[in-house]
């Protein structure tokens, strides 16, 4: 009980005092998560839409694989990226290991299947409604990709939020590839892990509360904005 109360107190204190270390960590968390998400969206949105609109040999397998990859343990992705970026690995010469770039790459891989799989579902549902109309207009599947992504934008906000939630909340991948280096690769989740291992449970929980509030803010803002736009757009 003391720990819980202490956690809430120190969360409030940390936020009110705008602790510079905390700001740095929060900023890096968002930078890494948003860039990983952005890259995953650039690839995952068209990829998911293409999976919904094109039929090809192995299509079902690809869909099943994509859905299964949504549940990939972050630490597995972390290990994969670690081995890729290790100086002894194939991309070692990039020198990305233990930098924000490695973390962005890991989160890109982690979020990509989520974006692609959820996008596929959204676009497939939409395509059922649009199919005859688009074919009547002479729209082929390739041209339908941007059309349906744009028309599904309000549902896709939820997809992007799911990806963001995964990225901002996971620790397994960023800890392994980032190394939790102070001022370089320390993000909210790895800081929480560190404070837990120092036995400072209430500080760890306080950081967790702040992380939760921040993600809540992002999610609420995105949901509100897209609801508003959807109402205006019909």
């Amino acid at each position: 009980m003391d720990d819980l109360l202490g956690a809430i107190q120190s969360a409030i204190r940390l936020m009110l005092t705008l602790d510079p270390d905390l700001i740095e960590i929060v900023a890096l968390s968002f930078e890494v998560a948003l860039l990983g998400l952005g890259l995953a969206a650039l690839v995952g949105l068209p990829l998911g839409a293409a999976l919904a609109l094109f039929r090809f040999p192995g299509h079902n397998l690809a869909v099943v694989a994509m859905n299964a990859l949504m549940g990939l343990p972050p630490v597995v992705v972390g290990l994969f990226v670690y081995l890729l970026l290790s100086r002894s690995g194939p991309l070692g010469s990039l020198g990305w290991l233990f930098t924000a770039k490695a973390m962005i790459l890991a989160q890109f891989l982690l979020v990509l299947p989520i974006i692609a799989a959820l996008t596929r579902q959204v676009v497939a549902d939409l395509a059922q409604e649009y199919d005859e109309q688009l074919r009547s207009l002479g729209v082929g599947p390739a041209r339908a990709i941007p059309t349906l992504l744009w028309d599904g934008r309000y549902q896709l906000v939820t997809t992007l939020l799911a990806g963001f939630g995964r990225a901002i909340g996971e620790v397994g991948a960023v800890l392994v590839v980032g190394g939790n280096i102070a001022h370089v690769s320390r993000v909210m989740t790895t800081a929480i892990t560190l404070e837990t291992s120092r036995g400072d449970l209430s500080l760890a929980l306080a950081l967790g509360i702040i992380l939760l509030l921040m993600s809540l803010l992002v999610s609420a803002a995105a949901t509100f904005a897209s609801r508003l736009a959807a109402t205006i757009d019909g």
């Binding site: 409604e129 649009y130 005859e132 109309q133 688009l134 009547s136 207009l137 002479g138 059309t147 744009w150 028309d151 934008r153 757009d233 019909g234």
Partner: peptide, 17 residues
């Protein structure tokens, strides 16, 4: 053929724009 025909559906799908 496609370019010379058009169709208006009973419940036309209008794009979200």
């Amino acid at each position: 053929l496609r370019s010379k025909q058009a169709m208006v559906f009973e419940r036309p799908v209008l794009l979200r724009r």
